[in-house]
Design a protein around this nucleic acid. Structure first.
Lengths: 100, 100
DNA sequence: ATATTATATCGATACTCTTCGATATGTCAA
DNA sequence: TTGACATATCGAAGAGTATCGATATAATAT
């Protein structure tokens, strides 16, 4: 299955941080507000907003405002695309398939 | 197929650099000496050695010495494992399969 | 309008990483 | 063992990044 092209350097940089991976893990399957993420990570709110911005710029999270709150969730499809593109570039003899 | 566990932060950090991705790309399917890599990248030799060390520490390249030269090649299997682990953690609803 | 709550941005600090010249180490040939 | 070549390590400079307190912006309710 053909995917859109992915900037694998930007993708890798976006996920190459422990705090961001924590955030990614907890909003992987849920829509969470910034404050929810702050509480679950023990990371300061500006720091969380900063990391969410990086993930958003890389297209790895979606966000929607509801009232005063902004909810974020991981964009799993983009995550899978990034992984597949990295595998395609750097493991062409160990094909990885995106099961849809 | 079950893989060994991967430190996804270390994996992502290892591939999160443009110069390293260039190196990874050119020694993906070939065994290349450090000097070969220097010539194909226009990057200084100490810099190349530095990046190779990071990739080696992360288990993403193999190396073998033959005489004075040391040859490196990408470990595609580890690359695929890293990609699959990231996808498993952060795209569980878009399963990616390691085809063996 | 004002107060309250939620998130984003700013600014400063500390830390990490990339880069490369200089140098050390390793390997081999003569 | 000396010289030549290949790679690794060292050390320093500069760039980039994470973190968080303070503050600005946004949304809502009273």
């Amino acid at each position: 299955m053909k995917q859109k092209s992915v900037d694998t350097v930007e993708f890798a940089k976006a996920i190459a941080d422990e705090t961001r991976q924590k955030i990614m893990a907890i909003c992987c399957c849920e829509l969470l507000s910034v404050n929810d993420i702050v509480e679950q990570t023990n990371v300061a709110q500006p720091t969380v907003s900063h990391h969410l911005k990086i993930l958003k710029t890389a297209g790895l999270v979606r966000s929607e405002r509801h009232g005063k709150k902004v909810f974020y969730t991981l964009n799993q499809e983009r995550m899978a695309e990034g992984c597949c593109q990295v595998a395609e570039n750097f493991a062409p003899e160990h094909p990885v398939e995106f099961l849809d």
